[in-house]
Simulated assay, not measured.
Amino acid sequence: MGLSEKVQLLGAGLYTDIPDVLTLSSIPTVSELDYVGNEDFDKTMLDSILPKAVEEKINFRDLLEIDYEWICRCLRILNYGPYFTTNMVLCPTCKDAVRGREQQVDLQTIDCKPLPAGFTNDITIPAGAFIDYKQDVHMHLMTIARVIEMNNDKSFKLADGGVNSRLARACYCITSIGNHTHMTPVEVKLELSKNFSPADYLILADEVGRLSDYGLRAAGRCACPVCGNKEAAYLALSSDRFFRPSVGDLRAWGQARGERGMEDLRRYTASAVQKHS
């Protein structure tokens, strides 16, 4: 019998057509994720995996970016447990990245920053935040569909093939500036280039980052395999890698699951659920 668990979304109350709680279940035994790389992970997850693994019928592309990442991480823990083997740890004592030594970490050590009580997805950066610019800026948290569109937008490509991610995120998060409403990312980019001083642009980019900084953190805590410092960290971005646990990870989960039953996922989601109740 497959496992299932109800998970409350971080953006509970912000959706029109998506319930606050989704029911996650086991993904197919041999899933499409076994055949994809990071470049097509999101498409496969949205189009093939989530429709099979989530009981409720919704448009998964309408999920906020923070909820998409939250669901992916919860689904991973439900199906494969919380343990993950990494070969890179960042240690403040060693003052360097410890590479090449495998370390089993617990994904449940990744903190999640919930939305504040009463949050509405219309965030204002007041004109007073800037040095020269004299108009308010409005922004919102992006859906995962919007993030994918941003990542594919050639308007923000750099000469070396990379992406000006700071500028792209600002232009895609911002919805209006002063009397200019329903702005496209290209229109926002034009306004920033024409009317924002270099100092005000830096302030704006910093405010966009700060005011959209919710959801799962990028790293979790672990012990350093060299010096044993328990305040070391490992990176944990949602990707195909996290759906490919080692046999050792699965065996560690099997032992823990026998001792705790389904507490792994319930414990992981409890904090966010309580803060949204």
Results as ranks from 00 to 15, higher is better:
175 T>N: 10
248 G>H: 11
216 L>I: 12
237 L>W: 00
222 C>A: 09
224 C>G: 09
243 F>M: 03
227 C>I: 14
250 L>I: 09
225 P>M: 11
238 S>E: 10
206 D>L: 15
180 H>M: 10
206 D>G: 10
174 I>T: 09
241 R>E: 02
200 D>Q: 11
232 A>K: 08
194 K>V: 11
220 G>C: 11
191 E>H: 02
193 S>M: 05
249 D>S: 03
231 E>K: 12
206 D>I: 06
206 D>F: 08
231 E>W: 12
234 Y>D: 01
234 Y>P: 01
221 R>H: 15
207 E>A: 14
216 L>A: 14
188 V>H: 00
217 R>W: 00
214 Y>V: 06
179 N>H: 09
222 C>T: 15
248 G>D: 14
182 H>F: 12
191 E>T: 03
207 E>H: 12
177 I>C: 06
193 S>K: 06
185 P>N: 05
246 S>E: 04
230 K>R: 09
217 R>H: 06
196 F>W: 05
238 S>F: 04
227 C>S: 07
216 L>Q: 11
183 M>T: 10
246 S>L: 03
216 L>R: 06
244 R>F: 08
246 S>W: 00
218 A>G: 13
236 A>F: 05
205 A>Y: 00
180 H>F: 04
208 V>P: 03
230 K>E: 15
221 R>S: 13
215 G>N: 11
199 A>L: 05
200 D>V: 07
239 S>I: 03
176 S>V: 01
179 N>K: 11
206 D>Q: 13
218 A>S: 14
191 E>V: 03
218 A>V: 13
232 A>W: 09
184 T>W: 01
242 F>I: 08
212 S>V: 02
178 G>R: 02
234 Y>L: 02
227 C>V: 13
178 G>P: 01
244 R>H: 11
240 D>I: 02
208 V>E: 10
213 D>I: 04
199 A>G: 03
247 V>A: 05
213 D>F: 06
235 L>W: 05
177 I>A: 09
190 L>D: 09
235 L>P: 01
212 S>I: 02
242 F>R: 02
239 S>E: 07
239 S>D: 05
215 G>E: 07
216 L>W: 02
205 A>F: 00
229 N>P: 15
